[in-house]
């Protein structure tokens, strides 16, 4: 036994580290066979010694980069995660009977890696949708100008729903100067809780709405976009516009992995004091497991024709028996 710590030159260290990393890289690159746990990594005293002795600033030349080209895991959600099910065909049928994430299996009591990562991916895309913005170019394509509610920041939008239901004086002045008053139908677009809902669906639903309303002989107001928008804005904006019907396209609160669902809210002569009971809604408009935006547009046009004929919407329309 020696009392002196063994010393290793920098060059020797680099060489050891490079060798071990290369060895690890080749082992990890080979996929474990299905149903078998991956082989444990080799216990390498050389590696741990090297890591312990290597200064943090030392750069280490790496081994060959493995080639990984993944198919989209979000397109293969329903594969059972249970290695030896009691009833394999039965399990497949059970999984097919619901959209819930059943039959995913486990590692000990925890989810499998692929289930965990898929769940986190769904949450990630949802977060991006909520905290994103509608691109200006999209609005320009449909000739929409943009105004803002009394909300000034994204945090405030989440914290103060009341401010998202009121326009600033400046916004009202802009709308007042740029919009035709008292049309039959005023279309408005709002980001709501999902900018992605507007970004992904507007170009499909909006032309259907415009063509449909025109074919029905209804006069259309000038469309515009409202940032930091809540549904209740319908009442406030119509104090300026005076439309018979306001149609608001607004992003829904995203569900997990369904981040781009749009809702269409509409109401007969909205104004102060009107509530959800006075409005109608078509929700879950998305090409990802909801109502197709073009079909939804056609449905909305038909519905608005009934609203205008009945001069009523919401509960009042249903009481008249005019609801489809």
């Amino acid at each position: 036994m020696t009392s002196e710590p063994r010393t290793t030159s920098d060059d020797q260290l680099r060489s050891i580290v490079a060798d071990v990393l290369a060895e690890l890289g080749s082992q990890r690159g080979s996929a474990p066979s299905a149903g078998m746990p991956p082989a444990p990594l080799p216990a390498s005293s050389a590696l741990s010694a090297a890591i312990a002795a290597t200064p943090a600033s030392t750069t280490v030349s790496s081994g060959p980069t493995p080639h990984i080209e993944l198919g989209d895991p979000t397109l293969n959600r329903r594969a059972p995660g249970i290695p030896n099910p009691a009833n394999p065909a039965g399990l497949t049928n059970l999984i097919a009977s619901t959209g819930a994430r059943i039959g995913v299996g486990r590692a000990g009591p925890r989810p499998l890696t692929r289930s965990l990562l898929l769940f986190q991916a769904d949450h990630a895309v949802t977060q991006d949708a909520i905290f994103g913005d509608v691109p200006q170019a999209l609005l320009e394509r449909f000739g929409m100008f943009a105004v803002q509610t009394q909300v000034t920041t994204h945090d405030e939008f989440l914290l103060r729903p009341d401010l998202g239901r009121r326009l600033t004086d400046e916004a009202k002045a802009t709308i007042g100067s740029r919009c035709t008053k008292n049309p039959n139908v005023q279309i408005v677009v709002g980001d709501g809780l999902s900018a992605a809902a507007v970004t992904n669906n507007l170009d499909k639903i909006y032309p259907v709405l415009v063509d449909g309303f025109r074919s029905a002989g209804l006069s259309l107001g000038d469309p515009f976009f409202i940032r930091y928008c809540r549904v209740g804005i319908i009442n406030d904006l119509n104090t300026v516009i005076g439309a018979d019907v306001v149609v608001l396209l607004i992003g829904e609160r995203p569900g997990l992995g369904v981040a781009d669902a749009l809702s269409v809210y509409s109401g007969w002569q909205p104004g102060p004091g009107k509530t959800d009971a006075d409005r109608d809604v078509v929700c879950m408009i998305t090409e990802n497991g909801g109502t197709n935006p073009m079909e939804a547009g056609a449905f909305v046009v038909e519905h608005i024709r009934k609203v205008i004929a009945a001069k009523a919407s919401g509960v009042a329309l249903r009481t008249q028996g005019g609801d489809s």
Binding site: A100, V104, P109, R110, P111, S115, F119, D122, R253, P254
Partner: peptide
């Protein structure tokens, strides 16, 4: 206990069967 904590009906996340 909800499959993977994802309640697709109520659109919120809670604790999983796991």
């Amino acid at each position: 206990g909800i499959p993977m904590g994802d309640d697709s009906m109520l659109s919120y996340q809670t604790t999983s069967f796991h």
